[in-house]
């Protein structure tokens, strides 16, 4: 992979936004809807006025970028090959059609060269749009919500394929998305929150160690709570919370009295007692409360737990069946100190 591309933009309208991030290979810009992801892409493409690097001051037609909006924006009156040849109109007809055909072949669309966009599936339309965005060999590819129009069942497979093809071209790509599955497939991940780019790094790093509650929410750590550091001992730290004193792994040098936020993934919470039945080893970080709601989540079940704090946990189907879980049951849960994640804001 080539050296990272620095993107640094300041936008005042339609939203106030300052974002600074690196693009390495296939980079996902993760953020909730309306946070300004599309706006940032449009600013980099030169479609809305903004200050920043790279490409500041150039009109969109002069910027070495490829831009694919959420709707793909294929020209409905032109066939696939004519769509891809459009950016090459300065070249002689035979040359540009030849290049367009090569690009479509690389995208695996050898049979659809002369189809109109309306005759193509969503995934095929996307590949035509990608081929068209790549035609001028841009220095940066900008994709807006590339998974939103794809079929839920084939989404991951299609994007895997697309990312592989993009890696082969070696063109750095910035994909704006709220899709955590796409974020996990990326080479690099940048998280956009109200404060700008709150965290960036490898997907593993960001998903395992979100730096703030805003980032945590986006990467699937939904329930977070405040706490106060009581004492530290070696790699462990005791924190005072609404659920009593809890032990967690000390991620950075915390000092007693400091306020921290903590959270734990739904999948990593254990049930240790249901009603009067002991069903797991007693350990540290035990909290008593009751199950108030059961929500089916495919083959697992999400339980809403209420006690001194409210949180959600998921249990596999076999456990739910074995324990005959029903709402309004008293339970005890355990939070493994290794998985209690601490954040400073």
């Amino acid at each position: 992979m080539d050296k990272p591309l620095q993107v640094d933009y300041r936008i005042h309208a339609p939203v106030e936004l300052a974002a600074r991030l690196e693009v390495r290979g296939f980079t996902t810009l993760l953020g909730r809807s309306g946070i300004g992801k599309t706006t940032l892409l449009k600013a980099v493409a030169g479609l809305i006025p903004a200050a920043g690097a790279p490409f500041e001051g150039l009109p969109p037609e002069k910027r070495p970028i490829g831009y694919m909006p959420q709707s793909y924006a294929l020209f409905p009156h032109l066939s696939a090959i004519e769509n891809v040849a459009f950016p090459l109109l300065a070249l002689p007809r035979q040359t540009r059609l030849g290049q367009a055909a090569t690009l479509l072949l690389q995208m695996g669309l050898s049979k659809e060269l002369h189809h109109l966009p309306s005759q193509l599936s969503d995934g095929q339309q996307q590949r035509v749009a990608l081929a068209r965005a790549l035609a001028r060999q841009p220095k940066l590819l900008l994709l807006d919500e590339p998974t939103s129009a794809l079929d839920t069942f084939t989404r991951e497979e299609v994007m895997h394929d697309v990312i592989d093809r993009l890696r082969q071209t070696g063109i750095p790509t910035l994909a704006a998305s709220h899709d955590t599955a796409l974020a996990q497939l990326s080479d690099h991940l940048a998280v956009l929150t109200e404060e700008g780019v709150a965290q960036q790094g490898s997907p593993e790093e960001v998903f395992a160690h979100p730096v703030s509650r805003a980032v945590a929410r986006l990467v699937g750590l939904a329930d977070t709570f405040p706490g106060k550091v009581v004492r530290t001992s070696g790699p462990w730290v005791d924190i005072d919370t609404a659920a009593g004193e809890l032990v967690a792994r000390d991620v950075k040098d915390l000092t007693p009295g400091e306020t921290v936020y903590w959270g734990i993934r739904k999948e990593e919470i254990r049930l240790v007692r249901v009603g009067r039945t002991q069903c797991g080893e007693a350990s540290e970080n035990l909290i008593d409360g009751r199950i108030v709601k059961l929500l089916p989540r495919g083959l697992s079940t999400e339980l809403r737990f209420e006690g001194p704090i409210s949180l959600s946990l998921t249990v596999p189907r076999h456990q739910r069946e074995r324990l005959a879980l029903i709402p309004h049951t008293d339970v005890q849960i355990a939070l493994d100190p290794r998985f209690v994640h601490l954040m400073s804001r």
Partner: peptide
């Protein structure tokens, strides 16, 4: 807009 980014 997309047409413009394609260098048109």
């Amino acid at each position: 807009q997309t047409a413009r980014t394609l260098g048109a």
